[in-house]
Write a protein that binds this DNA or RNA. Structure first.
Lengths: 185, 185
DNA sequence: TAACATGCATACTAGTTGGTATGTTAGCAG
DNA sequence: CTGCTAACATACCAACTAGTATGCATGTTA
């Protein structure tokens, strides 16, 4: 499944070559089709397990019981890799949802769930921060979380295309600045 | 080329079926390969002509010699279709750059040029607005233009995946609100 | 220990699709 | 009327790739 994830991240799901995945994993078709009904089932499993796990490790868990969600969010944003090969591949969740959500309802539902988990983790942390008086009370946590996701993913898209590290740097500054503006005065 | 654009918008470039394009256009392979060397050349032409033309009509031309760029930008954002089938297909430029920019330098350069034209149109209009004292002088036109593109494209991505018109509505409110905050007091 | 299940590997099939080779027609020059 | 070219149409090929049929080795159970 790691091999499948890597190949899907490189080539997208539809252009992911099963033989390439199998070669990378060091197994053959027999092994694959013993464990998965078809290519689609393998793709679903990659979303449900690999991509979901990455997302939770990076965004959800650090926000759980965070003392100050603003500090945590800024740290996550600032820790994003600016290396060319990372920027060039983009965000696995975004790549996959962008490719498949209009074509396959199974993929759409799965990626939508991950976006929702991501959103809820941020919105929940912001609401908790409001209770603790470290986040401004005049902002809507849900809308703010959606906005942060949109702005961040937008910069990831532009960075992937421009291949200029300054694009993502600008994104880090801008998004961090916006998060910082959510602090109580 | 309209047929090619539509098929590419539906299925992406790599999964665009030449036979489907030809059937839609009412011509055959002979006609296609008389005018284009290969599928790649057709794709390049679609970017250079169809997608570029759409972008110019929607964003670049309205900003040229605009009295107040802020009013123009808000009007463009607010005029975005919220119909399910439109939201579901997403932005042609974003779809294509997202799919191909990591795989084919020709596509990457072409989509990067369109992003640049889009960016320059907004940044130029903002700078002109600053001269005319209708746009705040304390903002960086280039960074602001990049931010607006990122946020807007981000909402397009989320809307395409969620298939909930409220996502794009929220995006319109947020982005319009941010554009509005650029006015001089 | 015979029978069976698990967990693969190997070889093959069938459908899809980009690309090509060749045929055909309309129009124009001379 | 002849010769030629532009602009296609038709039929076909070859590569790629998801999926399948079958074989086989290693446990495991009755």
């Amino acid at each position: 499944m790691r091999a499948a994830f890597q190949e899907m991240h490189r080539s997208g799901f539809r252009n992911a070559d099963l033989d390439a995945i199998l070669a990378r994993a060091g197994v053959t078709k027999g092994a694959l089709y013993y464990h998965f009904d078809n290519k689609e089932a393998l793709g679903y499993a990659v979303v449900d397990e690999v991509i979901a796990s990455n997302l939770y490790q990076k965004w959800v868990q650090p926000l759980r019981n965070a003392k100050n969600p603003i500090d945590v969010l800024i740290r996550i944003v600032q820790s994003e890799s600016l290396k060319r090969e990372d920027v060039q591949r983009g965000c696995p969740l975004l790549n996959l949802s962008q490719e498949m959500s209009g074509l396959d309802e199974g993929f759409r539902r799965r990626t939508a769930k991950l976006y929702k988990d991501w959103h809820d983790a941020m919105a929940g942390a912001l609401r908790e921060g409001q209770k603790r008086r470290v986040v401004r009370s005049d902002i809507n946590a849900n809308e703010t979380a959606t906005f942060l996701m949109a702005a961040w993913e937008g910069y990831v898209v532009l960075g992937k295309n421009s291949q200029d590290p300054r694009t993502m740097q600008s994104g880090q500054r801008r998004v961090s600045g916006h998060i910082n503006s959510l602090r109580t005065a």
